[in-house]
């Protein structure tokens, strides 16, 4: 595990220096801060939900793009610089290497999520306070903010990005170049979001039912990671859901890392 941690720490250090991380983070932060201007439209109590949805949308999309870009970047950097040779030659196993890389990118994604949350939470809190002052009964129907719920929703977005990063890492072990891996990563993002569609199409009797229904079972369902409503409800059900989602993400992470290890053994380095 020490080697995994060493590789993860090095990956995190290196990723933090990439310009794409800083650019994406700044864009997301600016976007979240920009939601303050929504008050110009006078949405009333629904403004809070809009701000939360926009914030979590940026969190989810930004983390997904970051997962695709950074995972391919860190993998191909190691291959092209031949530092992968140095790691493997000193006894780092392929699974340790892939786990370390994934852990490093997962830490980076966590940092991104935390920074975005650190910006989003004050915005939400400020708007809720302002709206409550204007309309004291605005949030009496369970539509007020819930801090634990906000954390759970952000955690679910982070988990989703980590599963995507694991899948992209598997793709990278298979791909000849980073452009191909990134392209396929974007495709995976869409496919994983539509896993439930496959299942739905299958259950509705479309053609070929067994294939589409089967695909719905094989692939991770990213729709399941959308816990934005938890930000406003935040009941115990969402905690249970978050625990199950963690298991779900760990399982898929293990599947993709396992496939990546099999693939990396076949790859001539």
């Amino acid at each position: 595990m020490r080697r995994v941690w060493l590789i993860a720490a090095a990956t995190l250090r290196e990723s933090l220096q990439h310009r794409s991380f800083a650019l994406l983070l700044l864009a997301a932060l600016a976007f979240v801060a920009g939601t303050l201007f929504l008050r110009q439209f006078n949405f009333g109590s629904s403004e809070l939900k809009f701000v939360a949805d926009l914030g979590f949308g940026m969190l989810s999309l930004g983390a997904a793009l970051l997962a695709i870009a950074m995972m391919t970047q860190v993998f191909f950097d190691e291959c092209e610089r031949r530092t992968l040779h140095l790691l493997l030659a000193r006894g780092v196993s392929r699974s340790e290497f892939l786990l370390g890389k994934l852990a490093g990118v997962a830490l980076l994604l966590g940092l991104y999520a935390l920074m975005l949350l650190a910006c989003l939470w004050p915005v939400l809190w400020a708007r809720e306070t302002a709206l409550l002052a204007l309309m004291p009964d605005a949030f009496d129907r369970g539509s007020g903010l819930n801090f634990a719920g906000v954390m759970i929703a952000a955690y679910a977005s982070w988990l989703k990005a980590c599963v995507l990063a694991a899948a992209v890492l598997w793709l990278a072990t298979l791909a000849e170049n980073r452009v191909f891996a990134m392209g396929c990563g974007l495709l995976l993002l869409i496919i994983f979001h539509s896993a439930a569609v496959w299942a739905a199409y299958g259950s509705n009797g479309g053609w070929p039912v067994w294939l589409l229904h089967g695909l719905g079972y094989l692939l991770p369902d990213f729709g399941a990671f959308d816990l934005t409503p938890a930000a406003f409800a935040g009941d115990g059900g969402f905690v249970v859901r978050a625990v199950r989602l963690t298991l779900y993400a760990v399982l898929y992470g293990a599947i993709f890392i396992g496939l990546g290890v099999l693939q990396l053994r076949r790859r001539e380095i």
Partner: peptide, 11 residues
């Protein structure tokens, strides 16, 4: 092992 012309993380 020293591979041919390796590059290291510049930072």
């Amino acid at each position: 092992y020293m591979p041919e012309s390796p590059a290291f993380p510049v930072g």
